[in-house]
Amino acid sequence: MGRISEDTQARNEEAIRAAMDRLLRGNLSPGGKCDLRALASEAGVPRTAFHAEKNRDGTARPGPYQHLAQEFERHLSALRGAGSVPDPRTAQIEKLKDFKRRALSQIAAQHLEIERLREQAAAVGNVGRLPSGRSGTAPYRSCS
């Protein structure tokens, strides 16, 4: 990225901070995520400006907005740690994981209940099994 004026850099930083605020409040574009790519897109700056760059001699130097990327990641981590996730897809995934856990728990409980009832029925001894139908035939005669 070429050199930019201090005025342009200040305007870009202001745009990044405004975009950061919007994203962290959950104002995401449809299908968007709360990440550096979305931040760069919302602010209208190149994503590479958030990462370290290399000088011609191979030494690293911070990107012009790397400090803002780090600030954004800290805020995002704090929100996730507090259970307030601004990314609706992540929240949906968490809800689906919880639903799966509850469903598996219910299935396991129902399976145990079925096994208990089968054992109880076998212990009583007065419950008989229904005859199995021949394959390809209905268990009952036709009504017609």
Rank of each mutant, 00 (worst) to 15 (best):
A121C: 05
H51A: 15
A15F: 03
P86N: 07
P139D: 05
A109Q: 11
V127N: 04
L68K: 06
L79K: 09
A10K: 13
L117I: 12
G2E: 14
G133R: 15
L79R: 10
R129M: 09
T8W: 08
A123P: 03
V85I: 15
L24K: 05
I93F: 09
G26Q: 02
E42R: 08
I114M: 10
I93D: 08
T59S: 15
E6M: 10
I114A: 12
G63C: 06
A18D: 11
G133E: 07
Q66C: 05
C143A: 11
A108G: 12
E94S: 07
G58W: 08
F50N: 05
H75E: 11
V45E: 04
R74A: 09
P88H: 05
R101T: 13
P30F: 02
R61Y: 12
C143Q: 10
A19P: 03
R101Y: 07
R25C: 03
Q66M: 13
R37P: 00
G128R: 15
K33S: 13
H51C: 06
E119A: 14
R89A: 13
E71L: 13
L79A: 06
I114K: 14
K95Q: 15
S135R: 15
C34T: 05
E119V: 08
S135E: 08
P64W: 00
F99G: 00
M1R: 10
G63S: 08
A43H: 04
R22C: 03
K54P: 01
A123W: 03
S105F: 00
Q106E: 14
N55I: 02
Q120S: 13
